[in-house]
Write a protein that binds this DNA or RNA. Structure first.
Lengths: 105, 105
DNA sequence: TTTATTTATCGAAACATTTAAATGTTTGAA
DNA sequence: TTCAAACATTTAAATGTTTCGATAAATAAA
C-alpha cells in the first residue's frame, strides 16, 4: 500500500559526471577560491568591482575567472544597470557536496 | 561560567587553500572521477590492474592519474608484493566536504 | 640467475588554461 | 548625442596537463 523510495531526489540530487568535473575544475584555482571565500565576508552578494579590488589581476583575467564560476553554476550573475553582482549558488554547492558524499560510499 | 566554542575543530577540520585547490584539480578529470566511482562497486579497495580494465588508457596514463589522486591524498596506496592497491581516504573527503560547507557560509 | 609481471618514470606531442593588451559592447550621465 | 564607466571578447604568449611510446625499476616465478 505504501511505496518507500530509498534514495529520494530530495534533498540531495546527484549531478552527472560532466557537471561534477566542471565544478571541480572551477574550484581548482587559487584566484577563484579567493573569490568564493569573499562571500563569507560579503554575506549576500559580491560586486564585480569588489573582485577587482580583491585580486591582483587585470580586468579581463577577472572576467575570465568569474565566467568559469558562472559557467559551472557556482555563481549566479545579476545585472544592476552598468554593474554586475554575483550571488553564490547554494543549491549547486549542495548538489556537489551530495555527489562527494555519495562518492564516500 | 561556560565557554561556548562556535566552530570546533572537531569533527570538521578545515584544510588550507592550497590543499583545497589540489583536491579540486584532482577531481576535475573524467578518468579520475571514474576511478573514484569504482570504489562504490569495489567496496574497500581497488587494485591498479582493475583500473587498467576500467579505463581505455595506456598504463603510463593510468599511472599518472592514480598519482594525481594519491598526491591529493584522495587515495592511499598500499603495496602488496608486485601489486598495488588503493584505499579511498574518507578523512580527506570529509575535510574537503567540510571546506565546501564552510564556503556556503 | 633468468624471465615475466607489475608499476613508475622520461620525453615529446597534443591539448587546455591562464594571463594581459587591445578592442568591443552595454549602460548611465552630461 | 556624446562621453565615460563597467564588463566582455578577441588574440597571442606563456605555462600546465594529458597522453603515449620507450624504458627503467621492483618483485615474483621458473
Amino acid at each position: 500500500m505504501f511505496l518507500f523510495i530509498l534514495r529520494p531526489e530530495y534533498p540531495e540530487k546527484n549531478m552527472d559526471n560532466r557537471k561534477f568535473e566542471k565544478i571541480s575544475r572551477a574550484l581548482g584555482d587559487a584566484n577563484r577560491i579567493a573569490i568564493l571565500q569573499q562571500f563569507r565576508k560579503k554575506k549576500d552578494c559580491l560586486y564585480c568591482a569588489e573582485v577587482n579590488d580583491l585580486l591582483d589581476l587585470t580586468q579581463p583575467s577577472i572576467s575570465h575567472h568569474l565566467k568559469q564560476l558562472v559557467d559551472a553554476d557556482l555563481l549566479i550573475p545579476e545585472k544592476e544597470g552598468r554593474n554586475l553582482k554575483y550571488v553564490l549558488n547554494q543549491e549547486v554547492l549542495d548538489d556537489y557536496i551530495a555527489s562527494l558524499t555519495d562518492l564516500k560510499g
